[in-house]
Write a protein that binds this DNA or RNA. Structure first.
Lengths: 211, 211, 211, 211
DNA sequence: GATGAATGAGTATTCATTCAT
DNA sequence: TATGAATGAATACTCATTCAT
């Protein structure tokens, strides 16, 4: 948890610092991230970082939290969508992700780094926490699906979760790759191409790949 | 590529070195892995490492190659199985993995670290290479499935690959977690529990989670 | 010398600041003393310290002066006692010191730190000054003793001073140690024990340890 | 305790390192002593210091031990002298100290710093140890004196110790100051002046300053 | 070839001091 | 004047790599 001096900062500065941190952590990983770079990028003095955060680790942790919050707010990863069928959700969600990708590339990547476990040992603690949050969210979706009758009820929910998650992540991976191809802007063609892919994947999730 | 001095070493020493490296890299990640620890563990002088490898990175890369080879040889990840149906393959493969897990815990974990992208930037290069190999392998399996009529042929193969991979990885993840619970030895009960899970997952892959 | 802003402060605040400083300097030495701690302890803002003192060193120097003054006033280290025989003086002085120890532990210790030279190089300047003051005081005492016929007159006065000082300091050291044993309060028993010791020491000073 | 790599060094290098350390610690105290300075002065790489010592503190501690040993060996502070009368001992000891002062100024000062407690908190532990050694040594001397009949036996030995120590230290202080006056070499005149002082002090110790 | 000692570049963190409010 | 946030200089320590034996 940042020191209170951090919270007293004006929004712009706070955001500059965290975005600088996210950028650095994403580019170089935790170990190789230099506090100096972050300070420079955020246009503050190196020492100031320590006025706001206990140490590098705390800054890192908070960066994670911050990006988590960010996505919660912006992708509505949290609640209202909960009445949506998980398959529909995927479709809409995928769309939103594409828009985010265009706007918040770095942060999305950072978020992906986290979820992928790229920060490894460093995050064991927070990693578990993040997973739990994500899983809970997905389980709710699955529940809705079962209730609505779009998801089979003869299989253990955890198994469904695992299945859903696996396919979803793979799909995200694909979307990322595709989006990466256009460094600056996604063409409409690419856009529909991606949406098509997602539709197909969802179809596979529903009916399986077997005959 | 190691220097030729390395290849002149006797098998035992070579293996000791690589296994020590794998252990250290797995435990601490690339940045925090200490050459000194590896040398100690391998019972050779620190300086000797540099007689065999250009630098830390080369040792790391070779460790990856080595473990890749190891699995190729031991899990038959390469050829003969190719006539097998991908679903059957999963079942048998899963079984083999369990046996490997018991025998080569550290190396399996290291391998997982690699495939998961935990070494991040460090491996971008090799990562792509590994994925390509893996993907090729899986695509062959899928082809077999289509030919044998166990996999639907109305969907793009790359999509099937993506789907198959996603579910597979998630399944592996689960197996790892389960296996981890028994630090020293897997009980038979746990063993069948895991196999059951795999069966169910395969069933989901075949028929999907939709109604 | 503190800035004039300091002298404009009310007594209570001034004392709070100096006592906080003394406490910190005593506990951590000059180098490790933290201005922040002093400010916290004195319940003022860190920046205010610099409103009163040029820098850390000036605060330190003034703390020394302050404690010196304090003892001058409170132990009557200066004048009226001057008609007293140095041996009698020691006895009475010793008693007073015990009382002070109970009331002003920290400051006494700080004072001892100074006289002992614990602040080393930092005080070279002030140290000389302090010694001079102390020596002058003691020389007066010795003069009185010679005049009163309680001290031999066949020895160089500086030598007597040196002798007197050495034994005295050692005695103080002992008193401090004893006093330290009772963290909160000196028992009467300990009290008389200490006084006895002092008496014996004084006897040794008078007649020597030889046969 | 230094690492064994240190003990494998040739005598010259070892001595260069320790003397450089002693010099730096004496000049700047523990906190302000810079490892870099020590390394430079000893003509070795900064990192090498850490090949020999765990950290700054260990180097400091060993420097103390080393100078202690040095004086033990060179001033015969340990045993054979033990049959000597403490007063005679002081005389001879004083003489030796003068010679040492000329040869090993810095180290003598460092030693004095230690015994004076100038390193304060840092040494609480070792300080006690040093005092104990010193006290034991002195107590033996006093015992000899009592046995030989040159010291009165009607006084508590610890009191005698305290007395003896106080006067001795003060005397040393004086000698140091005198010696300091001649930066490069002690004139014979100064030499005899000092010896005279010592004789007088010893006389005072024997017969006291009272009438 | 093998060894392990020597090297020195590289960086998080602290804290006295300054400064804007 | 009081405040406390901002600043940045300063330094112990690590460890990959080199090198002398």
């Amino acid at each position: 948890m940042p020191k209170r001096t951090f919270f007293r900062l004006d929004e712009d500065k706070k955001e500059r610092i965290i975005r600088a941190a996210i950028d650095e952590f994403h580019k170089n990983g935790f170990e190789n991230a230099k506090i100096g770079n972050i300070a420079d990028e955020a246009q503050i003095a190196k020492g100031s970082i320590y006025q706001y955060f206990e140490d590098k680790k705390e800054l890192f942790m908070y960066s994670i939290n911050w990006s988590l919050d960010y996505f919660m707010k912006n992708i509505d990863y949290s609640s209202p969508v909960e009445e949506m069928d998980p398959f529909d959700y995927l479709l809409s969600d995928g769309h939103k992700k594409l828009e985010l990708l265009k706007k918040e590339k770095v942060m999305v990547y950072f978020f992906k780094d986290i979820m992928t476990g790229k920060f490894g040992a460093m995050t064991k603690e927070i990693n578990d926490y993040l997973w739990k949050i994500g899983d809970e969210h997905l389980l709710k979706l699955i529940d809705v699906g079962i209730k609505k009758g779009t998801i089979r009820s003869d299989v253990d929910k955890n198994l469904l979760l695992l299945f859903y998650k696996g396919v979803t992540m793979q799909m995200d991976e694909y979307v990322f790759l595709k989006a990466e191809e256009d460094v600056f802007d996604l063409s409409d063609e690419k856009f529909t191409q991606i949406e098509n892919y997602i539709k197909n994947i969802v179809e596979l999730m529903k009916h399986g790949m077997g005959c």
